[in-house]
């Protein structure tokens, strides 16, 4: 039994590593596809002199074949050394470490908000299928899914920060509580679209389960509403957990825009700056980082599948 699961986990981990390898290769290659000379691009705003260019070429192994360059870069990256930022001249790894906290805080808060509000709302809508509460929630979730985070941010800013003055407009604040206070609006803005999505998919999953024969059979045995609901939720949890895993990627896409809007110095804002400045080492590091987080989450979701779906567990153990 455990052998099968370990073999599955190992195979799945191997696939993840291959995926990350190919992806990092492509991300590294992007530098050479960008318009202009690579060495000049890497120089940034420094004076273009033959000596400077030569030094850059040596520093990035630009005279070596592409795969050798990539190999050097990947080797250093694995050791935590992502090179130096073109814009600031500082080590990229340090920059990421400084900023990861804010992004993690916003994303974590938004994820918690979306799940804690979205799942119960989706379940409630499914149980009241066709009635006004359901229609209201479904309608609201369509608007939520359609609203880009930055548009929501600006409206929230106008209403709650500029208009009512309840929340700060920009920045991170001082100390823990004030810091948290500064993160409320950004997290809500990020959570809104995500939460709407959670409502939609939870409702769909629960509705699908409610229509199953086993629900009719459970009711025919005189089981109470609570028991039947528990059975339904246990079954509906499988697709919901899967989709929640996929949302981690969505979070990272959204956080770029939110951080830019609220002028928060997180990874997302760093990505925007780096892209606009063509700060290749930073972009490469960030992309590989996000891809790693997303792939590892997908891996964890697959393993979670084993825990919550006995059918999948059985298939995995046998194969």
């Amino acid at each position: 039994m455990n052998r099968g699961i370990l073999a599955f986990a190992a195979r799945r981990l191997g696939m993840t590593l291959v995926l990350l390898l190919v992806l990092s290769l492509l991300v590294y290659g992007l530098m050479f596809l960008a318009p202009g000379d690579v060495a000049r691009n890497l120089l940034g705003t420094k004076n273009v002199t033959p000596e400077a260019l030569a030094q850059i070429r040596a520093q990035y192994d630009l005279d070596e074949p592409f795969l050798v360059q990539y190999w050097h870069w990947a080797g250093h990256a694995l050791a935590g050394d992502f090179g130096t930022s073109i814009r600031t001249g500082g080590p990229v790894g340090r920059m990421l470490l400084d900023r990861v906290g804010i992004t993690a805080a916003i994303s974590g808060l938004a994820f918690a908000l979306a799940v804690l509000a979205g799942v119960p709302a989706g379940v409630a809508a499914a149980l009241r299928r066709g009635r006004w509460a359901d229609r209201l929630l479904v309608g609201g979730s369509v608007v939520g899914v359609s609203a880009p985070g930055f548009a929501v941010s600006l409206i929230l800013l106008y209403v709650f920060a500029v208009g009512l003055g309840w929340f700060p407009i920009y920045g991170t604040g001082e100390g823990f509580l004030d810091g948290l206070w500064h993160l409320v609006l950004p997290s809500v803005a990020l959570a809104l679209g995500l939460g709407a999505f959670v409502v939609k998919l939870t409702r769909a999953a629960v509705v699908r389960e409610l229509d199953q024969d086993y629900v009719t059979f459970a009711r025919s045995r005189g089981l109470g509403r609570g028991t039947v609901l528990r059975i339904v939720l246990r079954n509906a949890a499988i697709p919901i957990v899967t989709s929640l895993g996929l949302m981690v990627g969505y979070l990272f896409g959204g956080t770029v825009l939110i951080e830019v809007t609220f002028a928060l110095p997180g990874l997302g804002a760093l990505l925007e700056d780096a892209v606009l400045f063509k700060d290749f080492p930073v972009v490469q590091a960030l992309t590989v980082l996000v891809a790693s987080v997303v792939s590892v989450t997908a891996l964890l979701v697959d393993l979670a599948y084993l825990a919550i779906d006995p059918r999948v567990r059985n298939r995995t153990v046998r194969s």
Binding site: Q212, D213, Y214, T216, F217, A218, R219, S220, R221, G222, L223, G224, I231, R234, N235, I238, I308, D309, P310, R311
Partner: peptide, 24 residues
């Protein structure tokens, strides 16, 4: 009906593949 179903009347369905919860 809550008191009747199960204790007095039980319904057995056609398809044994779908009438039981797959994850319990």
């Amino acid at each position: 009906w809550r008191r009747i179903r199960g204790a007095r009347v039980a319904l057995l369905l056609q398809d044994p593949f779908t009438s039981l919860s797959p994850v319990h």
